[in-house]
Design a protein around this nucleic acid. Structure first.
Lengths: 354, 354
DNA sequence: ATGAAAGCGCTAACAT
DNA sequence: ATGTTAGCGCTTTCAT
């Protein structure tokens, strides 16, 4: 039953089918593509021959000759284990599927060079469009590819040095509202944990924090900002130090869910009750063992809107480059209990967590 | 600066570059591919012409003529928002990248027909191999594609009606150990929440549960099994009914993390302390507001091992179809507090949760 | 070291 | 309704 499945034997071609069915190449083409009128009897013979041989049309050859689209889009994205990116990828996959396109998911790399290389590879493969969740801060190198006819839409971050569409979050307003809430609760020393400012999103969020102070005529103490908190582990460790210090902050603002989760762990471990606001919602945030306020948004919409925008370009619509800004909103999450302190607060952190 | 980026103008070809550089087509080919010796002066001229035109080799055309691989693998997978699948996808993406391959991620669909269709589309695109996280229970239709020369590796579920490699979890042993733990703690009425038995993985897990009873000479009450609990919401609702019943179970076993999370929510909302064992670990399980024991495993390894296996096939290695079974282990997660009951236990569940 | 011709698998444009 | 010819963009083979 199992034939020699490991032989690299050439797949049958249209010519093979034509020979077997005793018809011309073109007739096979017509039958396979289901267009035009073909004599039913003949069509049957062709279909039979094709089935017997296990004929599968070579899509790339058809595209090459006909000049049709490859019906493929590319997505450059970082780490699918991070739910932020995974949700975007899921949205893009859904839209691609709805349009009958395949999706090539490629890693966006660490810097502008990696990114450019990935884009160029996808262009060699003649993708019809590109969705990019950028890592690097310079996209000027991509201008050429776009000019060459590959539309691009940027997700989560605006393109820099490049004229292209984008869908981003309102980082500034979100951070401003979150910080404002803490200030309005009477906190004036708010510890800020952010990832590197090389991510413009972080800069926007930090500016939102500053603006909340300004809004209220308060001055912001920049020394309360802790930079380069890239992982939950780092956040947890930095929090240990911060909490031990004199004049520790009375509330915390975390620039993303990674730092938020890490900070939460340490606060929980020490039974601390300082309020925490965290940019990005996350799975199960509602079941956290203590309150946490998140700055949430529609993550799936970010990916879906970006993909829709891309397909408009692919369909040939011509319009000025546009940037869609998605709103955020404050959501109270986590649980509250009567217990002032956990009995056995420290637990093995979940493995493989972002 | 921005040239007419929306014109569907043909991308330049090798012939265009050759003309501009005043050399033959073949010379351009040699320069572009960086093989063979070409006069440096000439190579420079060619490179210059290529850069000026923004020439990008047409990868598909090269593959067509040379018969080389497409350097592409396909991944059929369901929902990337589910961290189980997202982790597998991340692992596969990493291995593909390490091998210089691109990855087409396609939806595996709802049934055998969708699945077959997706596979056939990928075969038309001549992917060099296929990773499949199956949804359907019949893969006989894929045999032909495999015989035609496309190697396949199944992830999480064994292929049915098809001779192919697979990487799966030891569902039986995991469920047996988890249930055994509860039985050894003295529980005899354990409520079982599982998804549909049409998923063989669920059947294996349920059999593991039964075996744990058998191991101890206990008889298992099949009426304690709740079927078709597919989402956290469903699990939460079913738990309401179960807890309200007379002779409610004194402990719970959930067949996957979706039902586990849902059950956890309801238990927590009611301040119930019945122990809960859940197949699948999940993000932040360590911070759940009450204890939970998970049956964990190396999810990333599942994807990575599968991809490695596939690449061995792609490289032409010939060996008997093999199934790798990954071990599981019990892990205590969640937090414990002195508080017998939460004050405000019911909270808005996290949005967009799997 | 460079180039001309043929052809990968398919479809477009023309016959018939 | 069916077939023939040419050629998509590239690499191979074989000259030179």
């Amino acid at each position: 039953m199992v034939t020699d499945s490991h032989s690299p034997s050439r797949r049958p071609t249209m010519t093979d089918v034509a020979q077997r069915a005793g018809v011309s190449l073109k007739t096979v083409s017509r039958v396979v593509n289901g267009v035009q009128t073909v004599d039913p009897e003949m069509a049957g013979r062709v279909q039979e021959a094709a089935d017997e041989l296990g004929y599968r049309p070579n899509f790339a050859a058809a595209v090459l000759r006909s000049g049709a689209r490859t019906a493929t889009i590319g997505l450059l994205i970082k780490d699918l284990r991070n739910e932020f990116y995974a949700t975007i990828a899921a949205a893009v996959a859904d839209v691609a599927r709805a349009n009958g396109f395949q999706l090539i998911t490629s890693y966006s790399g660490e810097n502008a060079d990696d990114e450019l290389e990935a884009v160029q590879d996808l262009c060699r493969r003649r993708v019809d469009g590109l969705l990019i969740v950028p890592t690097s801060g310079d996209h000027a190198g991509l201008q050429k590819e776009r000019d060459l006819g590959t539309p691009m839409v940027f997700l989560d971050r605006r393109p820099e040095g490049l004229d292209a569409d984008a869908v981003v979050l309102d980082n500034f307003a979100g951070a401003r509202a979150g910080t404002g809430m803490l200030l309005d609760e009477g906190h004036t020393r708010i510890g800020i944990l952010i990832d590197t400012l090389r991510m413009p999103t972080m800069g926007e969020r930090l500016n939102g924090v500053r603006q909340a102070y300004t809004d209220r005529g308060l001055s912001f103490d920049e020394s309360l900002v802790v930079h380069n908190v890239a992982t939950p582990d780092k956040a947890a460790k930095r929090m240990e130090t911060i909490l031990a210090a004199e004049q520790a902050p009375t509330a915390f603002f975390c620039g993303n869910n990674r730092s938020g989760v890490g900070a939460l762990r340490t606060l929980w471990a020490h039974g601390r009750t300082e309020p925490l606001v965290c940019f990005d919602d996350f799975h199960l945030s509602d079941l956290m063992p203590r309150p946490v306020t998140v700055i949430g948004y529609d993550n799936y919409a970010l990916g879906a809107l970006g993909a829709e925008l891309l397909f408009r370009r692919i369909r040939g619509e011509d319009f000025e480059s546009q940037t869609v800004v998605l709103p955020t909103r404050l959501i109270r999450r986590g649980t509250t209990t009567d217990a002032p302190h956990p009995t056995s607060p420290v637990n093995q952190p979940t493995e493989g967590i972002q």
